[in-house]
Each structure stands twice: as C-alpha cells, then as structure tokens.
Amino acid sequence: MAQQTGILGIQGTVGGLVFAKDGSIRQKPASNKASFQAKDSMARVRENASEFGGAATASKLVRDSLRVAIQAASDKRMVSRLTQAMRAAIALDGVHDRGMRQVLKSNLAPLLGFNFNLGAGIGQNLFFQYTLTGNGQGVTLAIPSLNPQTDIAAPTGATHYEIVVGASSVNFLGKTYQQAAVAAPLGILPLNGAALTNRTVVATLPAAPGADDLVVGVLGVNYYQQLNGKYYPLNNNASNPLAVEYVNVVASAVPAGGGSATSYDTTLTGPNQDAQGVTLAASAGDTFGFNALATGGSAPASMDVSVGGAQVASVAYLDRYAGQAFTFTHNGAAHTGAFAATVNF
C-alpha cells in the first residue's frame, strides 16, 4: 500500500508505478508465473520453493497442535526458527527426489530441546530434577522434588508460578494433529510456598498416536502476580520458558552424508577441550563425541546440555553441526542427542 511521506512524497506502489524511498520511480515488474512454472532454468527455484512451503506447513502444524502451551511463551523469531528446523528435517529425507522431500517423523529427533522462547531458557529458569516420558496416549511429567524458593528463577514482580505441560501428536503426511488434555495439573502455586514432592502431571491424547505420528511433549512455566485475590499473568513473554522435552523418536547416530552408527571420529573431554569447531565445557571426566565436518556454515552457535533438569555442560559449535548426532557421557551414563540450542536428557 502506498504511503504519503511528505507534501509530495509517495512511497510504495501506485497503479503500475513503484515509488522508491530514494525518490526514484520505476515500472512495477510483471508477474511471470508461466515462466516460473515452465522454464528449465527455474527448476532449482521451484524445488526450493516447494520444500520451503512444506517446511512452513509442518511448522504451522506443530504450532497449532501446541497453541495453548506456547501462547504465553514465544519470541518474535519463534515461527521462523521452527520453520528452519523443519527445513533441516526435510533436508534429511533420503527417500524422495529433490523438491518432493518431506518432513518425516524419523528425521525429527533434532526437535528435542527446541526452545520456543530464546529469552528464557529452561536451563536458566528451572533447577529441579524432572523427567518427561511418553507411553501410548500419555506424556508424563514426574517431579521428585521442587522447592520454588530455590529451584525456580522467577522474574521480578512474580508471586506465583504454574508448571506448563503440553503434548500433541502430529501427522505430517496427513496434515492432522491431536492435542492432549492435562489430566492432573499442579495449579497456580506461590513462589514462597512449601516444597513439592513426588508429583506427576499426565497429558493424555484423545487417541493413540499412529506409527507415523510425531508425539511432542513440552515443559515450561507461566508466572503470575497476585492482587486482591486474583492472579494476573505477567504478560511478559521474555520471562516464560517453554521447550520441547520429549519426542517419540530416537536420534540417529548417523550424520548427514554418512558415518558410523556406533562410533564417532572426534571425542572431547571435560572440563575444557575443543576440536574441529566444537568446544566442550563440562565436568572433569565427561566426554562428548561427534563426527567432524570440514565444510558447511561457520557461524557461531551454542548448546546447553541438561541431565534430569539440571544443566551439566555447555557446547560451543559452528552452525554446520546443527542437527548432527552426538553422544554425551555424564557421570558414567551415555546419552545420544543432536546439536541444538538446548538438549535435555
């Protein structure tokens, strides 16, 4: 839409003319849809456009399926980041031809640890032990012990908190999803209240997920301020953490482009060691194994690694490793995951 920027200034499109910000005027280029659909030189563009559209559709399915949980915990780039994650999953499809590749459940292990709100990480807000596990129609959160006065880093002004558990089952081929209902919520609790012990929350899907359905479980916290007996949400998305803590698919140890399913060619040892564009900061004796990549993106990225809800390591890496498999051993227990912003075991 055209906008008047001064007495005579116009910026935007009027009729068939484009008024540029620098004062220049040019004719609006004609759409050439037929050329785009038919020219051989546009084949790669058509393929990329098709796969990007598939990634956008898959991203929307996941967002819609978890809308109740993410409505109070997201950042401005959440949609684009989730679409990028789906685009990376499409790139792992080794079955279909370019331009026809799909989001397959088996390629979505890297979604584990996806943070819907970069301004509030799970590892920086929740400091209690927990597990999120799936079984058939249910996704269960188990909390052995939670002392809100020491285990939750609440923002200024908050007086109460609410543990958020959500789950959904998404079928990307059929473009359908189902949402889980939380059967036993913990409710809104005071931040200065007593500690909780042996609590469970179960999110139950309406029907058992199919073999091709991706089950996603998320965990987060909403904060409230109590005033005159009422609870008012802080309405500050920068404070509410929410992350994917469960998916019903195991990360493959085979990286894109090949590699061993049982061993890795590079191993780092804590407390501090680096190699091949990856740096590990962890406890002495912890190890981090991965397959080195010599080519690809070189933008810096970082990953927080948590075990049982407590952060135990930090990994700095080049973005070429995003989505690639790794193994992490902490206190003698081995865990397999994929490079992402946050990973929880």
Rank of each mutant, 00 (worst) to 15 (best):
274 D>H: 10
208 A>G: 11
15 G>S: 08
165 V>L: 14
145 S>G: 03
183 A>E: 15
171 N>M: 06
314 S>I: 05
306 S>K: 03
18 V>L: 14
78 M>R: 03
55 A>H: 03
71 Q>F: 13
250 V>W: 09
145 S>L: 08
186 L>V: 12
28 K>R: 15
280 L>T: 00
52 F>D: 02
54 G>T: 04
40 D>Q: 10
33 K>R: 15
264 Y>N: 13
137 Q>D: 07
314 S>D: 06
268 L>C: 02
167 A>L: 09
328 F>T: 01
225 Q>W: 05
271 P>A: 04
121 G>E: 13
231 Y>V: 09
181 A>S: 14
290 F>R: 04
224 Y>C: 06
60 K>W: 01
166 G>T: 05
46 R>T: 02
176 T>W: 03
249 V>K: 07
94 G>I: 12
225 Q>K: 13
294 A>D: 09
14 V>S: 07
303 M>V: 00
294 A>W: 07
113 G>M: 07
127 F>Y: 13
331 N>E: 13
16 G>D: 14
92 L>I: 01
130 Y>E: 04
61 L>N: 02
181 A>T: 15
73 A>H: 05
196 L>S: 01
149 Q>L: 08
40 D>H: 00
334 A>V: 08
74 S>N: 13
236 N>H: 11
54 G>L: 00
139 V>D: 08
90 I>P: 15
317 Y>L: 06
208 A>Y: 05
26 R>M: 11
163 I>V: 15
142 A>P: 13
135 N>P: 03
302 S>V: 10
132 L>T: 07
300 P>E: 00
139 V>H: 05
135 N>I: 00
305 V>R: 03
284 A>I: 04
128 F>A: 06
329 T>V: 11
204 T>H: 06
48 N>H: 11
126 L>C: 10
